[in-house]
Design a protein around this nucleic acid. Structure first.
Lengths: 337, 337
DNA sequence: GCTCCCATTTACATCGATGTAATCGTGTGG
DNA sequence: CCACACGATTACATCGATGTAAATGGGAGC
């Protein structure tokens, strides 16, 4: 028994296929009587629209893609939930994909994944280079989360990373910390998340009249627990050890805290630790972690709205929009709170 | 400028549309020369297949849905990664969806989400009742992860939860623990994950000649940090407090450890804590958490393979398959390791 | 030189839903 | 009583890709 088609419903209800379609799409000029008959036929046959047929005709899938580096990073999992909730609220479906932070995958996302089953893409890039967006096919709406784009090339939503990092650093300075290290930092002046946060950190140090110790800014291969642990260990072995660790995400912070614990340092007595993202674990770890909490629901909401507006607007699209979402520092045990 | 269609490629290359299609699908009887010309045309025009057209014709989307309760639960995020990796390896795409553990959403998953843009569904159910599967439309292949199904109604992959829980309990008994509580347990004899693990726990106690103290088996509203913390607190206030907590997932265990810490108990000196799932956090928390590690890659691989086999086999489908994946207990600091 | 074979290529129909434009039918105003 | 308006309904073409079956054309065999 094949799946019923719109035509089967039409025959069952004794009307034309187009009338069934009209009922399905809430077209206004359908009599109550016909509408009821069609509904009944739909129920009786267990009919469900074939999205391929619909899309072929309409040119839209009603699906958007959300591509994040890694769902193991709780921040992305939490963000994804908010995005899915928002798209669902607005009647779309989210196709969630992982890039692994690999450039080729991020490029695929920008291009719409080779097949065009997606009306638009929300991408949280890591490896993407500004030039990767240069010649992109603007028929596919794209919203970037976080930084890493040349202004004007695509819509983008992010928190004010410079300010956020500056505030976090100021918090540590206000506690008397002077040797503040950055785990996951980037001194090359990149306009990506790491780079901007490092700039904020430097601003705070400079404003406090401190020198910029570049042996305290440490890049990491990934932003996971293990990387935080490794980085913390190597920093604590410096001739002049840090008295605070500004970790550019919470996983790094949690890994750092674990390594410090294993090596006999206590947090926050010996070292303060601050993270970014406010993932749920930071509220239950021992100690709890001070962190910069981005407005995740706000980021998700704006990203989805921007994308759907672009999709609704159709092909061309005006100038790219930059949206700044809110953030706040939540002080917890790992820095004395 | 519209997106190029197969016809545009055909004209550009000076061949018929079908020949282009043949090239796209690696049909063997196409001359090298023609193939090269078509490839060139594809590149020149930036052509990409329209998946809607293809699906309409082929009747398949090449997409499967994976529906999990909650991506905030790290186990599901980790599992999702493995499923996505496996489907990608086999040339399919995963549509990842959250059910929130709500029955209506799980039912929607079983039905294929009202639109049929998915060739099959992998569902990790929480609220689903056995009868929900009774009259289901078997044209849509379905693989269940974890328990909660009447035998024979759908394929399913899970670890041996009874044995796993028994082993974990035996481990605690072997450490001299006698008042072992279960957080997230279920005494109603349900055949879901909680119920089966509770049975394993009871088996171990009985085998050790201990009575079954039902004040130590505590259900929780959700399986999150906060629930573990709340449950641990209330258990430790019992007249006769437990000396070990068997937590049915790692988030509960982590939350419990935090609550114990706040209330001045030390783990594992005063209380042992064991979790389930082996999420990454348990390897870096303070203390690290003893946990039952399910073979996540194995579960994902079998689930995807089963599903794709069903999809390839076409409509009917033989008897439901039950697959058991491996697990092992990893002893860490929270129970003395 | 003529068949026949087979590799290659193509015309056409089709998948299911929907936009367009035409048709049907009832009711209203003159 | 007719013309006309307008709500309801329908026939038909179309979206893009591909399966079917048939056409094309070059070479081998006799």
């Amino acid at each position: 028994m094949r799946r019923p088609r719109i035509k089967d419903v039409a025959e069952y209800a004794g009307v034309s296929a187009k009338t069934v379609s009209n009922v399905l799409n809430d077209y206004e000029h359908v009599s109550e009587q016909t509408r009821a008959a069609v509904r009944e036929a739909i129920d009786a046959l267990g009919y469900r629209v074939n999205i391929a047929g619909r899309q072929l005709r309409r040119g839209r899938t009603g699906m958007i893609a959300l591509a994040v580096p890694d769902l193991d990073i709780a921040y992305f999992a939490e963000l994804a939930r908010h995005v899915m909730a928002e798209t669902e609220r607005l009647g779309s479906t989210t196709l969630l994909l992982e890039t692994g932070g690999r450039r080729e995958k991020e490029l695929a996302a920008v291009r719409g994944f080779d097949t065009q089953f997606t009306d638009g893409v929300i991408l949280s890039p890591l490896a993407l280079q500004p030039r990767d967006l240069a010649g992109r096919d603007t028929r596919l709406p794209l919203v970037l989360l976080g930084e890493c784009n040349p202004p004007g090339s695509a819509d983008h939503v992010a928190i004010d990373n410079v300010t956020a990092a500056r505030e976090a650093t100021e918090h540590l300075l206000s506690r008397g910390r002077r040797r503040i290290a950055v785990i996951g930092g980037d001194l090359r002046g990149q306009r990506n998340t790491s780079g901007l946060r490092t700039i904020g950190y430097q601003e705070a140090l400079t404003a406090a009249g401190l020198s910029l110790p570049d042996d305290l800014v440490l890049a990491v291969p990934e932003f996971r627990w293990a990387d935080g642990a490794t980085a913390a260990r190597s920093l604590m072995r410096l001739p002049e050890r840090p008295d605070a660790l500004l970790c550019l995400n919470d996983h790094l912070a949690l890994g750092a805290v674990r390594a410090l614990h294993e090596d006999g340092w206590s947090v926050p007595q010996d070292v303060d630790v601050v993270g970014f993202d406010d993932i749920e674990a930071t509220r239950f770890s021992i100690p709890t972690i001070t962190t910069v909490a981005p407005d995740k629901p706000g980021i998700a909401r704006r990203a989805v709205q921007l994308l759907l507006e672009r999709i609704d607007a159709g092909v061309p699209g005006g100038p790219a929009v930059d949206e700044t979402a809110g953030h706040r520092l939540i002080v917890r045990e790992s820095s004395g709170g």
